[in-house]
Design a protein around this nucleic acid. Structure first.
Lengths: 189, 189
DNA sequence: TCTATCCTGTGACGATCGTCACAAAAGCTC
DNA sequence: GAGCTTTTGTGACGATCGTCACAGGATAGA
């Protein structure tokens, strides 16, 4: 919870009163490795603030996993299209390690925001951050080659390369596992 | 303005009162073809709701334009990273046709939202839509080949293929102009 | 420690794509 | 319509990447 408080304060000013209004929408949850926060086909009813561990968002394309995102500590994991538009989720979110999260229940969050505008503001700022992250990530694929994308991750999210296996990382970078292996060996020489 | 009202009502309920609060933050603006809504290096201080015409977001990569986005009628054009984080914009936004927009001034919008929570809600919903759009677009590059991405656009945004030239579209799809030309000729046969 | 399983590295080869070059077609202006 | 500019199509060729196959390493559980 301490991490969540720090996260919120990094986004906006938040009084004890605001916090009391928000609290009913929150619950601490634990997931084991390989547990699902969201399954493909379900409608996403929550945001998950990651306290410890990490998880991935992935599509099942013809039986093969394609990772579209990784969420680490202080990230918010969700499917915006499903959460916002009440659509069935095209991808799943699954714990990659044992995971501690704070769950924001959508319904309860909406009522809290209706009562307390500062919570609405918090929601807007979270979404702003999520959108900014997506905007940057999309640009990677248009501006950079596979190798450049890898180097970008190396510099920008070095911890990701430490924690995510090469196999898992390759689809996130949009290349075959073997190609990523060769990129990596090329760079070490 | 009529289009903006319809757009807002599609997102949330909005009374005359709400509208009166919002109005001071809005201004109708016109751009000629090739005019800039936002130049690279500037900090983005506005959202632009497109009423008529369309524009593009692009990076200048070593003197070559790379289009990262196109915004048409009923879209909101902005640079979220710059708008939200007050960073210098890495890309420019430029009119591709003569353009009519409603400009949301960031400062005035923030004060309006501070006074009227329903405007804050509107802002959150706009961002939700922007984030959802980015989320989908990023997934394209991980799940689909160049040809599949083209076919996806064909089915999902057919009007984009009518209005955007092949040269402009190719960088948006992440392929060379010649490759897109060949994809297109392959499909017509 | 042995074994089963998963992850990573590597070679071979074909498919795809980017680049360069130039021609054809389409728009635009006078 | 002539002449200019911009856009699109196409061929050749090399670079990169994906796929298949398999070997070596790492890891975890019995």
């Amino acid at each position: 919870m301490q991490q969540l408080i720090a996260y919120i304060h990094s986004l906006t000013t938040f009084s004890d009163d605001n916090w009391q209004h928000l609290l009913p929408a929150l619950s601490v949850q634990y997931f084991h490795k390989d547990d699902y926060l969201l399954k493909a086909g379900e409608v996403c009813n929550a945001l998950y603030f990651i306290c410890r561990g990490y998880c991935r968002a992935y599509y099942d394309k013809d039986g093969v996993d394609i990772n579209t995102d990784f969420f680490f500590e202080q990230d918010i994991a969700t499917n915006i299209n499903s959460y916002g538009r009440r659509e069935k989720s095209a991808f799943a979110i699954q714990a990659c390690e044992s995971l501690e999260v704070v769950r924001f229940d959508r319904e309860l969050l909406l009522s809290a925001a209706a009562r307390d505008p500062q919570i609405e503001t918090l929601g807007r700022l979270c979404l702003q951050r999520i959108a900014a992250r997506q905007e940057k990530h999309t640009a990677l694929f248009k501006l950079m080659s596979a190798q450049e994308r890898y180097e970008y991750l190396e510099q920008t999210y070095p911890e990701m390369l430490q924690r995510v296996s090469l196999s898992q990382l390759s689809s996130f970078l949009g290349v075959a596992r073997e190609t990523l292996s060769r990129i990596r060996s090329r760079r070490q020489s």
